[in-house]
Structure formats: C-alpha cells, structure tokens
C-alpha cells in the first residue's frame, strides 16, 4: 500500500509540475524579461520521471522488468 501511495503521489506531482512547466515554457515574465527558471528542462525531466514511475507502477501490478533476465544479457 505504501508503495502505491508513494508511486501514485510521485506520478501526480510530476504530472502537475510537468503541466505547469509546459504552460511556462516559451512565455515571458510580466516585466518582459525571460524566465530565470529553466522550464523546458524541468518539463523534460518531469516527462522522463513520469515514464520511470509508470514502469514502477507496472512492477507493482506484477509485471517483471528485471534487466538481468533479458535474453541479450544484463546490458
């Protein structure tokens, strides 16, 4: 249960932050200057993190994803 709360909580947080970063990407501040926060980078990080969480959620659902069992070796 704890795993589910952490995973889904992270997924929601990353989604929310990603959507917020997306809305800020490419916009200007009210005073006309560029944002100091790298919103594009944050959005990219959120998307990547979200996919990692999705894999973890798949693990929690019972899907095995261990690379050590890959037919072509661990790497």
């Amino acid at each position: 249960m704890f795993d589910w709360i952490i995973s889904l909580g992270l997924a929601v947080t990353l989604s929310g932050l990603g959507v917020f970063a997306h809305s800020r990407t490419g916009t200007m501040r009210k005073d006309g200057r560029a944002h100091l926060v790298p919103w594009r980078g944050i959005m990219i990080g959120c998307v990547f993190g979200l996919f990692l969480i999705l894999v973890h959620v798949a693990n929690l659902l019972g899907v095995e994803t261990g690379p050590e069992n890959s037919p072509f070796g661990r790497f």
Partner: peptide, 8 residues
C-alpha cells in the same frame, strides 16, 4: 507479464 529489455 514480463518486460525483460535489458539496460539498453
């Protein structure tokens, strides 16, 4: 129920 892709 398996997704063994390896690290790459």
């Amino acid at each position: 129920d398996r997704l063994y892709l390896g690290a790459t």
